[in-house]
């Protein structure tokens, strides 16, 4: 249990979002920027289907061909449309909260569950010490009888 919790929290904390996809710069750009023409629709550029999305995709291709780096393009888009154009909040300032709170909550919850279960196990062993009366093992005749009885319910 303890181990599972530790492993789980490690998985959550250290798996970086980048690992899920490793495509080239263009693919990364169209999945890390929102579609500028439809910000109110909350669609990432890669999913955008309309003319506005196509324009932005063409623009990114042009910029890449002109030798701009990924960071330069992202900065240019942020300058143009504001932070809203980023598909995810950056990991600084208040926006760090977006990233931190879920793993912190999970870790906190895990600690809570662990402490609770440990307490409950203590409750049990404490009580068992007082009323220790492990009954005798079932003898073979009774066991056969039990088998017969159980068959009725199967």
């Amino acid at each position: 249990m303890k181990k599972t919790i530790i492993i789980l929290s490690m998985v959550i904390l250290f798996v970086s979002p980048g690992q899920a996809r490793a495509n080239d710069d263009y693919d990364e750009l169209i999945t890390s920027l929102m579609c500028p023409a439809c910000l109110s629709h909350n669609e990432i550029l890669a999913n955008g289907q309309d003319a506005g999305a196509e324009q932005a995709k063409e623009d990114i291709k042009r910029r890449l061909a002109a030798g701009q780096t990924k960071e330069e393009i992202i900065n240019a888009y942020v300058a143009l449309y504001g932070e809203q154009i980023l598909a995810v909040p950056d990991k600084s300032g208040f926006n760090l909260m977006a990233w931190l709170l879920p793993p912190v909550a999970l870790a906190g919850g895990a600690a809570f569950v662990y402490l609770a279960v440990r307490g409950w196990v203590k409750n049990h062993s404490g009580r068992r010490n007082i009323t220790r009366d492990a009954g005798p093992a079932i003898d073979p005749v009774d066991e056969d009888r039990l088998d017969e009885e159980m068959k009725k319910y199967l």
Binding site: V15, M34, Q84, L86, A87, V88, F94, A98
Partner: peptide
């Protein structure tokens, strides 16, 4: 975020994938 900092941000699919894939 808009209420606290005044600036609009977007939380898109990469955020949800990153957190929910391991969970």
């Amino acid at each position: 975020s808009e209420a606290v900092t005044g600036s609009k941000v977007t939380v898109g699919p990469p955020f949800f994938n990153a957190i929910n894939a391991p969970i």
